[in-house]
Write a protein that binds this DNA or RNA. Structure first.
Lengths: 144, 144
DNA sequence: CTTGCATCTGACGCATGGGTCAGGGTTTAC
DNA sequence: GTAAACCCTGACCCATGCGTCAGATGCAAG
């Protein structure tokens, strides 16, 4: 599978795959002797995971730090590629901790923002002719 | 009050104030006849609100759209400056609705991410020699 | 063999929220 | 009166996550 198909299958673009590779999110893929990248379905799966993590708010650098442990997620079965060292494990663990803190903080902030927006919205509805309003959707759908 | 003091009082920099002004978050301030900007305490209050909203994740453009309604928040008492029209009210209301949706979505995503991180962290702790771990911080501190 | 799409590398572009000069006037303090 | 500190505008710089072009090959089809 060459880069175009791989990218399409993963729901992204060739450019993104090269970018991920360059930034260490993806192992350097097997090349044909003429230099064309070839990807396996495992590679594609990994790309999907990467996209998921990005969409969740992790940065490229975060994911690069994690790249040797991505197999902990879903069906990703790619071998570790950059470093086999256990030395970075505590570091990764630290990163998780810090990330968790940041995420918790974000959630807190967003919850406050939500409240604020909803107050503004309500006040606006009072002073303005009611156009088309949705009844206050109460609290965030923490259904996840 | 000139720009330096105003910025310092609001906890930011002169550059930021000029930037907010340029992007329509702040009304063009009164100038001395030599062209220096002067700010009132109301202006400063508004800057604080702007910073709060930014820190909550609103973009500059969002806040610009809201700028005529910022007085709904806190003690902001600046007059509306760009448009007195009521025409944009429904639009602003729409914006609030959409923003609320986006925020809710973010909260949902972040909550998922949080869970994911916490799983990874736990698995890492299993396979790795326990260096220095914090006991799983459970759920986001929704203390706000 | 030739056409035409896919791929290669390298480099510059975009939006965000400002930081940081550069080159020149203003205000304040001694 | 003169230096220090502040302010002015305009312009370029940073990191992120790619998009987009340019010029050169590669590959599959007729």
């Amino acid at each position: 599978m060459r880069i175009g198909d791989a990218a399409a299958t993963a729901g992204t673009t060739p450019r993104a795959l090269r970018f991920y590779e360059q930034r260490g999110l993806l192992p350097p893929p097997v090349r044909t002797r003429t230099g064309q990248r070839t990807y396996s379905t495992a590679d594609v799966a990994r790309v999907k995971i990467i996209r998921e993590l990005l969409s969740l708010g992790l940065t490229v650098d975060d994911i690069a730090t994690l790249s040797d442990h991505l197999h902990l997620l879903d069906g990703d079965t790619l071998p570790e590629h950059t470093v086999p060292d256990r030395i970075r494990l505590p570091q990764a663990s630290e990163m998780f901790r810090r990330r968790l803190e940041v995420v918790d903080e974000h959630i807190t902030r967003l919850t406050r923002l939500r409240q604020l927006l909803s107050v503004c919205h309500a006040q606006l509805a009072e002073t303005a002719p009611p156009a088309n309003e949705s009844p206050d959707p109460a609290r965030p759908t923490t259904t996840a």
